[in-house]
Design a protein around this nucleic acid. Sequence first.
DNA 1: AAAAAAATACCACGAATGTGGTATACCGGA
DNA 2: TCCGGTATACCACATTCGTGGTATTTTTTT
Lengths: 221, 221
Amino acid sequence: MMNKKEKNIEDISIWIVEDNIHFQNTMNNLINQFDGFVCNFAFESCEDALIEMNNTAELPSVILLDIGLKGMSGIEGIKKFKEISPATHIIMLTIYEDKNSVFDAICAGASGYLLKDSSPENVIEAIKEVLGGGAPMNIHIAKKVIDMFKQLNPPKGDYGLTGREKEILNLLVMGMNKKQIAEKLFVSFHTINTHIKNIYEKLQVNTRGGLVAKAYKENLL
Amino acid sequence: MMNKKEKNIEDISIWIVEDNIHFQNTMNNLINQFDGFVCNFAFESCEDALIEMNNTAELPSVILLDIGLKGMSGIEGIKKFKEISPATHIIMLTIYEDKNSVFDAICAGASGYLLKDSSPENVIEAIKEVLGGGAPMNIHIAKKVIDMFKQLNPPKGDYGLTGREKEILNLLVMGMNKKQIAEKLFVSFHTINTHIKNIYEKLQVNTRGGLVAKAYKENLL
DNA sequence: AAAAAAATACCACGAATGTGGTATACCGGA
DNA sequence: TCCGGTATACCACATTCGTGGTATTTTTTT
């Protein structure tokens, strides 16, 4: 009775993408019980949901999306959903608080996330929150966080590179090869070879890719 | 005189957890000098502070918590403190600038962050801010930060890399060579060679260094 | 079903790289 | 004055790269 809901044109349309049928049903019932929300579809995979999305005119306002799905992952799914329906808010569902996944999800465009053991109230609350325009967050603190990150960026690991070595490192990062660098600095190819050898030693790398990557990661430029 | 403060029931209670005695005292004095704040306790480890927390009815409003502590780390401490006293705001203290630590701290529930060489004004300011802000630094803050970072960074050009190509790009950035990548992905060296060839073509580069640099600059990872 | 895209695989060869050496000249601090 | 660090330079050799091909299978899209 409760989970067979009279469709109302005013209702906020919500989809669920979740491969655990039990949890899917639980969510479904929960949402349909709540006045103003209706769960039109529940899928077991992103692929299925995307097919429906491509064939319907009634795009959902919110998608509850499991982060660990078979086939296309939730993270990947976010991008696809957003391509088709940019206005749809996506709330990730996760079992445990996986920092990296959540971070990735946010980067991919998720509006929020929910732990699977959240209380029904929390679920409804989260949906309301994203619908209400997203982050009702203290802008000051957010700004402060950014300032912190900024402060933290400049100083990083010091590997005791000499001036010349830093100079050459920068040219390497620009994609130049040894010969080109030698010509640019008016020294012998052999000299550059030696310098690069020393840089590799100091940074503990042994490929060009590893070197450049480290230079970026550790802010050596 | 100054650091022996008359206890006032109205004062905001602040604890310090910091293993450097000198810095601990400096902070202590600073806080007690300020009208409206009182530093009731200063500990040298999370463990000590937690014991006290479990035995007192007067929970602190704010904890200044060193990030690099002997025994339980500051990051771990955050969770413990929050368990006992969710309303307590935690401000991290650190000398070394490490982006990851800060992010971890924020995820663990820290409200703010202070470099140890901050001016006295900054310290007081930070405490006031977390007290006034109310909003805990959760995933929403992170979202804000990411959003702003996204805005600051160029919208990262799309070079039409396929999934496999992105995968290989990431391995290249890790400093692996073709043979290693081939082994890791259980495919032939020739296949990797072809993929890399195509990546070079798409990104318009022709050296490993240039590739990795571009990957970082354009946020292709 | 047909077409397009992606992933796989192989060959060859000159160019560039990574690594082991050795060695000289310069300069600033102990 | 002697020593350590820096910059310079050269050699040799195995390994890896970059680039020109061609070609099949699998997946995705139309």
